Simulated assay, not measured.
Amino acid sequence: MLYIGSHISAAKGYAAMGKQALKLGANTFAFFTRNPRGGKAKEIDQTDVDKFLQIAEEHAFGRLVAHAPYTMNACAAKEEIRSFAKEMMEDDLKRMEYTPGNYYNFHPGSHVGQGSDAGIAMIADLLNEVLLPEQTTTVLLETMAGKGSEVGCKFAELAAILERVTLKDKMGVCLDTCHVWDAGYDIVNDLDGVLDQFDHVIGLEYLKAIHMNDSMNPLGSHKDRHEKIGKGQIGSEAMRRIINHPKLQGLPVILETPNDDAGWTEEIALLRSQHE
């Protein structure tokens, strides 16, 4: 089974997101838990959630991959920014329990000159404060491209965060194809080698989801510029190998390509046709 979808606007609620996913030919999707730039989240309507859960069950949806706001920086130099990140994640994880058993993905953060070791420690500290034994949501660290002072462009940095987290069973990783390519991991010519390295450094048991994006930039550029499937430096053949790799089966695949609904419908259909 290929679980594939795109980002969908959460503005009209859960049931509307489920219906929109079906229109795109999707059986999973991603959504922002609140405005991508941060701010207060809208109230959740239980009736709306129940309608969505029925849609998801009827159409055998895979796990959803919710996305934290881009402004959330768990390793900011300023304490008030870190506190804001903690408040947002605590609130988001409570809200995620309305749709149990799904994923909550976030960018680890930027250490803004403090150094990656300091950043890693701060991110782990925040996770240890917000993760709860009773939660059903798995929190995903996203692989990053390495622009600026981003933490998480190296598998070793993600492993170092996970090592410091107490509730490891509540954690996972989302592998972004554009990001790892831009970070210098050659998924075009050595996909097996990259996955072996991931397994050796982090452990494939932590790999829970994929952000499927082509890249505008060459290998190791550290720029993070997404491109449509097959239109960038990674190419459609590499994407075909990724969705068919035996170690990646069953993971939700989320498109974050620069597209509209018609474009995502096309990409979803293309990838489905290539899935063996």
Rank of each mutant, 00 (worst) to 15 (best):
Q249Y: 05
E43I: 07
Y70H: 09
L251P: 05
F198A: 07
A11W: 15
F61H: 07
S215Y: 00
E205S: 14
E57A: 15
G13R: 13
V201N: 06
M212F: 15
V49P: 05
H245F: 06
D260W: 12
L255W: 14
A156D: 12
A60M: 00
Y206R: 15
G235C: 04
D190I: 03
M239Q: 07
Y70C: 11
A41I: 11
L175R: 01
V151K: 07
W181A: 01
D48M: 03
A21W: 01
I243Q: 01
E150S: 14
A26F: 07
G62C: 05
E266S: 13
A269K: 00
R82T: 00
G101S: 04
Q135E: 14
L24G: 01
L162A: 10
D92A: 15
H59S: 05
G39L: 00
K208V: 08
C75R: 02
Y103G: 15
Q197Y: 06
E142W: 02
E57M: 08
H111M: 08
E256W: 09
L204D: 12
S116A: 15
A21I: 03
L141S: 06
H7V: 13
P258T: 06
E266M: 08
F32I: 08
I210M: 15
G109I: 08
E163C: 01
Q197S: 10
T28M: 07
L271P: 06
W264F: 15
A60N: 12
P218A: 04
V65A: 14
T137H: 13
N217K: 11
C153H: 13
E57I: 06
V253D: 02
V49Q: 05
I268P: 05
N244E: 14
K247P: 10
A68G: 09
P36C: 07
L207D: 01
E163Y: 09
I44C: 11
F198L: 01
R240G: 04
S110A: 14
I242A: 03
V112R: 09
F84W: 08
L24Y: 03
I120Y: 03
F52K: 00
L127R: 07
L167K: 04
G203C: 06
A156K: 00
L248S: 01
K147A: 12
A11R: 15
